[in-house]
Design a protein around this nucleic acid. Sequence first.
DNA 1: CATGCGTATTTGTGATCACAATTACCTTTG
DNA 2: CAAAGGTAATTGTGATCACAAATACGCATG
Lengths: 214, 214
Amino acid sequence: MAEKLQDSYLAAHDQLYRTLRMRIMYGEMRPGQAITLRGVAEEFSVSVTPVREALKRLAAEGALSISVSGRFQTPALTNDRIEELAALRALIEVELATRALPRAHMALVERLQSINNSISVAVARADAVTYIRTNLEFHRTLYLRAQAPAMLATVETVWLQMGPTMRALYGRLQRKDPPMHHRLILAALKAGDEPGLRVAVRADVTQGLRMLAR
Amino acid sequence: MAEKLQDSYLAAHDQLYRTLRMRIMYGEMRPGQAITLRGVAEEFSVSVTPVREALKRLAAEGALSISVSGRFQTPALTNDRIEELAALRALIEVELATRALPRAHMALVERLQSINNSISVAVARADAVTYIRTNLEFHRTLYLRAQAPAMLATVETVWLQMGPTMRALYGRLQRKDPPMHHRLILAALKAGDEPGLRVAVRADVTQGLRMLAR
DNA sequence: CATGCGTATTTGTGATCACAATTACCTTTG
DNA sequence: CAAAGGTAATTGTGATCACAAATACGCATG
C-alpha cells in the first residue's frame, strides 16, 4: 500500500495535494487559471490517478472550481462571494483568537512579533506570495493556541478559497503599510484585553475588503 | 466524458458521493463503521475508481476518517471534538439565521411549520434517521434565505461530520420532546425579534450537547 | 476579412490489472 | 485452553488503456 515508514514518506496523491494546496492558498496562481490532469501528472512524473484524487479533493474544499464539462480551474470569485468569505473569516477567527487569548504566553507573542517582522520585509519587497504566506502564518500561529482543530481547519478552507483572489488583489493593495492591525492584536494579547482583541482581529480580517468595494 | 444531458445525468462518482453523503449526514451509519472500496463498488456495480474519488472527497470533508493504513471508516468523535463542532454550528448558524430574518416572509414560516410537523411525527415514531433528516431540513430551509452559500456549505460540512455521532446519541435522546426550540425560532421569526432568534438558534444547536456531557 | 464547418487534439471518466501492505484466520505449540 | 506463528484473503495505491465529449485549429466559403 506504500504507506509511511516512520514519519517521512507520503502517498503520491497526498504529496500532490499538499503542494498544490500551498500554491493556491499562498497566491501562486491567478484566478481562473486552468489545471489539467495530464499537465500536473507530467510535472510531477506520476500517472493521472493520484492527480485526480488531489484535484478532486481541492475542488471539494473550494480551492478549485469545476466547469460544466469537468475542467479544473482556480475560482474567480464574485464580490458577493468575497464579502461572504470575509464575513466567515471574521466570525471564526474572532472566536479562535478569543479562545487563544487565555493561553497566549509571552513566548507566543514573541513568535508573533518575529513573524510580523517577516511580513514587513515582504511588504518592503512587494513580494506578494511571501506576504500572503507569512500573514497567514501569523494568524495560524495564534489560532493554534485555541486548541480548536475543527475551527482552524474550517478557516483554512476559507483561506484556500480566497488564495488566488488575494494574490490578484494584492496588486492594488497598500504600498508602505506594515501590519498595522497586527500591532493592535499583539497589544491586546499582551494586555489580556479580550474586547480589544476581538475588534482588532475583525478589523484585520475585513481590512482587505475596502479596496475591492469600489 | 459522460457529462450531464439537460439536468438529469450525473457522473458516477458524483452519484456515489451524494448517496454516501446522505447516509452519513442523516445518521444511517454508526460511528467507527468501516467502508471498503470494493464493497461500495460492488453495491453500486461500478469499479473502484469512482468509489475512491467519492470516499476521498468525503474524507476531505471530515465525513470519513482514514486509518494509518489507509482504511476508511466513519469517525468516532471525542467529546472535545463534539463540543467544538457544536460551538462552530452555533457560531455560523446564528449568523445565518440573522441574515435570513429580514427575508423571512410568511410563506417561509409556513414551510418551516410544516417541516416541524414532520419532525414531530418522526419523534413519535422514534425514527432516528427521519428525525435527523427533517431536523436538518428545517435548518437548511431557513438558512437558504440568508443567501450565503459559503456559510451554508461550511455548516453542512459540520453536520456531515456529526452525522454518525448524532445517530448514536439519538438513542439516549429525549422521548416525547417535539421540537421545542423550533417553536421559539418560529415565534422570533414572526415577531422579527433578532435577539430572540439568535438565542433560540443557539439554544437549539447546543441542546444536544447536554446529554453527552455526563 | 469575417464566418461557419469539419477534423484533430485535448481532456476527464471509468475499468482493469499488478503490487505491496495490512488484516484475518487457522494451525501449531506450550 | 491460551498464545504465537504462518498462510491466505482483503484492501488501498498507482499505472495504463479505451472511450466520449469538449475544445482548438485550420480550411473553405461568403
